[in-house]
Design a protein around this nucleic acid. Sequence first.
DNA 1: ACCAGAACTAGACAGTGTCAAGTTAAAGCG
DNA 2: CGCTTTAACTTGACACTGTCTAGTTCTGGT
Lengths: 216, 216
Amino acid sequence: MRTRKTQGKKKKTGRPLSRRGDGGLPAKLLAATEEILREQGLHKFTLREAARRAGVSHGAPAFHFGDVSGLLTAFAAEGYDGMTALMLKYRAEAPKDAMAQLVAVGCAYVDYAIAHRPQFQLMFRSDVIHLDDKRYCETSERTFAQLQETMAPYLPAGASEAEQMAKLMLAWSAVHGFATLYLEKGFHPFYGDDPKPPVSADAKRMLELLNASFLR
Amino acid sequence: MRTRKTQGKKKKTGRPLSRRGDGGLPAKLLAATEEILREQGLHKFTLREAARRAGVSHGAPAFHFGDVSGLLTAFAAEGYDGMTALMLKYRAEAPKDAMAQLVAVGCAYVDYAIAHRPQFQLMFRSDVIHLDDKRYCETSERTFAQLQETMAPYLPAGASEAEQMAKLMLAWSAVHGFATLYLEKGFHPFYGDDPKPPVSADAKRMLELLNASFLR
DNA sequence: ACCAGAACTAGACAGTGTCAAGTTAAAGCG
DNA sequence: CGCTTTAACTTGACACTGTCTAGTTCTGGT
């Protein structure tokens, strides 16, 4: 009730922003958020530090995002967008058969998680995010839709909707669980303890295994 | 470096604890932690509030846990212990065949996560926990060992160690991912949106499906 | 020329984690 | 018994936080 967003930024002339800005303080704040999260982690993230890095006063973020959760929610939503984009990219580069498409989506999921670790973690941190945020819901559903779409060929047409949903959830669970454990527990099953191996290859082999043994 | 724990509490007579206590301020603090997390969630958890609920001054927790992360780490370690205990319980109640034992472990994993939601979430929140804490590592490894043990019959003896590890990880990923998404995203695949159905049944059906389609 | 409103700034407040120093009471020892 | 040590706290201080409220400045529209 306090997010004074007034209305959209689609007036002809664009908003003026006092003197300095080129128009994008929200964008700057989101960039600062990423910086801080990457450097210090979520527990050391601070609204005021974000404002500092964006070069504005400590009260400025509240105007655009209302809340510290508001800023983080927006950042998480950006994450879903990025992940969806990566899924589409991988799919476009992959062969058109069902298996390759599904692997592409799974790889994008894991790769994005690894490349944007704190953002990915934030995307599922329900205690710090406004789960009912409109943009957050939309972007998150769009990501899920990709998974659903590429899983479709593997869902038996005869089965009940519940059974199909379950299988879909299981696939998502496997990919999500892998990404999570990879990040939070430092698993590198195929390459031992070496911390910086081709992580993407890790994900790919995991997904191949998933396909080989799970999808019939 | 500041956790003045001095040495163990195993002197003959037991420590005196000024006047009030029956000996267990750490235990009280952990109980208070659980209470707060359950009521308010992690983002509203406060060392001082924990101290308040335990009836001590705001500086007291630092003496036993050094740090806010120290307290949370201890609480997370307790969580691994509880989960291990639940696994053993379910396994004891289940038939002795490999499949039933594995299902028991998986069920315990998910059931524990649902029954102790904030604790489970904390157990994997690497940014807020001291990952190198001794007790945390021990308990966490003990939990993992249960999974490894019950998965053993399903790991092909001929395969390389890496391949076995991968399969183990995949199973863990599936169970962990399911629990996580269940909690963070509110999935109830088998019962629609009804928020309070027999959650345990949800988990069981998911695991049956996992067994049926993943484990050959 | 004027006004409404967007996009901030500046100040204040209660509450936080951490630290240093002080306090209390029991344990150990002669 | 008196004396010292030490575990287990308490108290007070500090810098910093999120949020609120009240200005301030600048702009486009009329």
